[in-house]
Write a protein that binds this DNA or RNA. Structure first.
Length: 345
DNA sequence: AATGCGGGGAG
DNA sequence: CTCCCAGCATT
């Protein structure tokens, strides 16, 4: 631990800054545990601007945890569609049912929160601190980066998890721990950014090892990146003359779990030119569209060939018809929305 | 400790 | 193009 840093001064400075410069965010209007929990789930690996409209829509449709617990899973998936990391949606619903079954009140204890589906170390600490005023220490990407820079940890964050947590706990004030955590997240988002940090305007500049080094951006080092393989696949757009087309729900786990999709075969390595209609859901006069869909996932890039044909009058087993005005609410992923848009011209 | 898991915005 | 976002679950 670096003795040149005074932990108690960090919290005081950060809170004073927060009182003047806090970001205005929709989930900060009330310390309701349901709202705090909902916002934290939506914000996992998601920007504030990306999560905000989803938060508003969730709150409009399900004002409290009992309402969310009573909703069908399909509606929760629809409300989540487009945001990504869809295991959050299933866990959100499961957690709501757990809370509602237990009387509707969220536990205030960090360990009990941690046991809820979709609630990990960060989210449990965040809810405990923000919603219940406990002196917990949530550590998100922003806070890990700020702590690394304050203490001068140059290794990648993953290599210093223990040290970062220990240091962050020494900074956490006994009161206003929730505001303190949010102050660090705001500072991390607007000042202590991953690239080109604005140290001159940072309230924590004094005593920061990274700022004193002259190259704060080097703290912490980036993790080693991995190559992103290419995969190819086919999607089949079988439409009726009225515009309705066949779709199905993906398995509840794994990639795009429980979202809706156009039928198609397994995605595999290879060339898109070799992708044919052999995976078609039924025999038809399939026409291959000239365009293609490109989509970047975390671990691979997908190129999708699209085939169109006239659909039968009745939907085959395990498929449903989706009307054009139902596309937005049906629960399609971002990838499938792109494919559908291309197929519809 | 490593890996799988979306989508979008910024540089 | 790369990086990274108010991480979690699984192995």
């Amino acid at each position: 631990m670096n003795a040149s840093i005074a932990p108690s001064r960090v919290a005081a400075k950060a809170l004073a800054w927060f009182d003047r410069h806090a970001r205005v965010l929709p989930w900060r209007d009330a310390p309701d545990p349901y709202r705090v929990w909902l916002s934290e789930i939506l914000l996992q690996q998601t920007t504030t601007t990306g999560a905000a409209p989803y938060y508003a829509e969730f709150l409009r449709r399900w004002p409290d945890v009992a309402a969310l617990a009573a909703a069908p899973m399909e509606e929760v998936m629809s409300a989540f569609a487009g945001l990504g990391y869809y295991s959050r949606a299933r866990n959100l619903h499961a957690c709501a049912k757990t809370i509602a079954a237990g009387g509707g009140a969220f536990p205030a204890d960090e360990a009990a929160l941690r046991a809820l589906p979709g609630v990990g170390p960060y989210t449990a600490a965040a809810i405990a601190a923000i919603a219940f005023g406990q002196p917990a220490t949530p550590i998100d990407g922003n806070i890990a980066r700020i702590v690394s820079r304050l203490a001068g940890f140059s290794a990648p964050i993953a290599a210093n998890r223990r040290e970062i947590e220990a240091f962050a706990k020494t900074l956490t004030p006994p009161r206003r721990a929730g505001d303190f955590a949010q102050s660090l997240m705001d500072i991390g988002a607007t000042i202590c950014r991953p690239r080109s940090p604005a140290c001159a305007t940072c309230p924590l500049h004094e005593g920061c090892v990274a700022a004193a080094s002259g190259d704060p951006e080097a703290f912490p080092a980036r993790a080693q990146k991995k190559p992103r393989p290419q995969k190819v696949g086919a999607a089949f757009f079988a439409a009726r003359p009225n515009g309705a087309f066949l779709a199905r729900r993906r398995p509840p786990r794994g990639l795009l779990g429980a979202t809706m999709e156009l039928p198609g075969g397994e995605w595999r390595a290879g060339d898109l030119a070799d992708v044919g209609a052999q995976d078609a859901p039924f025999a038809a006069a399939w026409t291959r569209l000239p365009g293609r869909v490109e989509h970047v996932f975390t671990h691979f890039t997908l190129r999708l060939a699209l085939f169109c044909a006239e659909a039968p009058g009745a939907a085959p087993e395990s498929m449903v018809y989706v009307a054009p005005d139902e596309i937005e609410s049906a629960g399609f992923s971002g990838l499938m929305r792109k494919a559908i848009a291309l197929a519809r011209g």
